[in-house]
Amino acid sequence: MTTPHSACLHESGGFPYRGQWPTDGWLGVQLAPFQLLAGGERTFEDHDHGWHLGFADRLVQADPELFRRTRRLIVDTGSARSIDDGIAWWTELTARGGEGMVVKPYPNLIRSKDGLVQPGLKVRGREYLRLIYGPDYLEPAELARLKQRRLGHKQSLALREYALGLESLRRLVTGKPLWRIHEAVVAVLALESDPVDPRL
Rank of each mutant, 00 (worst) to 15 (best):
T70S: 14
T77L: 15
I83T: 09
R58S: 15
F67D: 11
V60D: 00
G78K: 07
G100N: 00
G86A: 08
R71P: 12
A56F: 05
A62G: 12
R72F: 12
L59H: 04
I87Q: 12
T77M: 15
T94K: 01
F55G: 05
T70F: 04
I74D: 09
T70H: 05
T94F: 00
G100A: 01
R81N: 13
G98N: 01
R96F: 02
G98Q: 01
G97D: 05
R96A: 14
A88E: 14
R81A: 12
D85G: 13
W90R: 07
R96N: 10
S79K: 07
W90D: 03
E65I: 09
L66I: 13
G100Y: 01
T94M: 04
V75Y: 01
E99V: 02
T70N: 14
P64N: 07
R58E: 15
F67Y: 11
V60Y: 05
E92N: 15
A88K: 04
R69L: 15
R68A: 10
S82T: 04
D84A: 14
D76K: 09
M101D: 02
D63P: 00
R68G: 05
A88Q: 12
A62L: 09
V60R: 04
A62H: 08
E65G: 14
A80M: 15
T77C: 15
R81V: 12
L59V: 07
P64M: 02
D85V: 07
D63E: 06
G100P: 00
R96Y: 06
S79F: 06
E99P: 00
L59A: 03
D57M: 12
S82A: 10
A62W: 08
I87H: 07
R69M: 10
Q61D: 13
S79C: 14
I87Y: 12
G78R: 08
V75R: 04
I87E: 11
L73I: 08
Q61V: 13
R71A: 15
A95V: 02
A80F: 10
R71K: 15
V60G: 05
M101H: 00
G54K: 04
R68C: 08
W89F: 12
R71S: 13
A88R: 07
A56D: 01
I74W: 08
M101L: 12
S82E: 05
R72G: 10
V102W: 06
Q61W: 10
V60Q: 06
V102G: 02
Q61A: 10
D76R: 05
T70K: 09
L59M: 13
G78Q: 10
L93H: 01
R96I: 07
A95N: 08
G86E: 03
F67Q: 04
W90E: 02
G54V: 10
S79I: 05
R81I: 09
Q61Y: 04
R68L: 13
R68D: 07
W89Q: 09
D57F: 02
E65H: 11
A62F: 09
T94Y: 01
A56W: 00
R58I: 09
L73N: 04
G86C: 11
F55W: 13
R68M: 07
A62M: 14
A56L: 00
D85E: 14
W89I: 02
L73D: 08
G98V: 01
R71D: 11
A88P: 01
G86D: 03
D85C: 11
V102L: 12
W90T: 10
E65F: 06
V60N: 02
V75E: 03
G98K: 00
T94L: 03
L73W: 03
V102R: 06
M101G: 00
L93A: 06
